[in-house]
């Protein structure tokens, strides 16, 4: 039952594409795996693609927010990509503001944005 979310490394960036509905265990495991991988690879950027995610509740939002803060503590920038309209609407209605979070429409734009940020 316990599937792990694959984390790919491309140059100095980690790429994560969440392809199925997140249960709590998988979300927590992902948090740990990503931080370990950041430590091992000294990657400076992370792109998390949520194109396949069709809802986000307060628990998953908290895990994502924590991942972003923890990554930044470790010196890496995170870009979230592919948030569907329905997800954006429900997040705001839930009262969750992912403030100071870099976002982009899709993976490609996210990688571009991250590259600009890292060069700056």
């Amino acid at each position: 039952m316990n599937v792990r979310i694959p984390i790919l490394k491309l140059r100095d960036t980690l790429i994560v594409s969440i392809q199925w509905e997140l249960d709590d265990q998988t979300a927590i495991q992902f948090q740990e795996d990503l931080l370990t991988k950041l430590h091992e690879t000294s990657a400076r950027g992370v792109v998390i693609d949520l194109t396949s995610i069709d809802f986000i509740d307060s628990f998953i939002a908290k895990v994502l927010g924590d991942v972003i803060s923890m990554s930044s503590l470790m010196g890496a920038r995170v870009v979230i990509t592919g948030i569907q309209p329905a997800v954006a609407i429900t997040l705001i209605e839930l009262g969750i503001r992912l403030e100071d979070v870099m976002t982009a429409l899709d993976l490609e734009n996210g990688l571009d944005k991250l590259q600009l940020e890292l060069e700056a």
């Binding site: 069709d54 809802f55 628990f59 569907q84 309209p85 329905a86 997800v87 609407i89």
Partner: peptide, 17 residues
């Protein structure tokens, strides 16, 4: 529609958790 489906799914997830 998809937005209401997301609202309903999210609400259930909150209450169940």
């Amino acid at each position: 529609g998809t937005v209401d489906q997301a609202r309903i799914t999210t609400a259930i997830s909150e209450l169940a958790r």
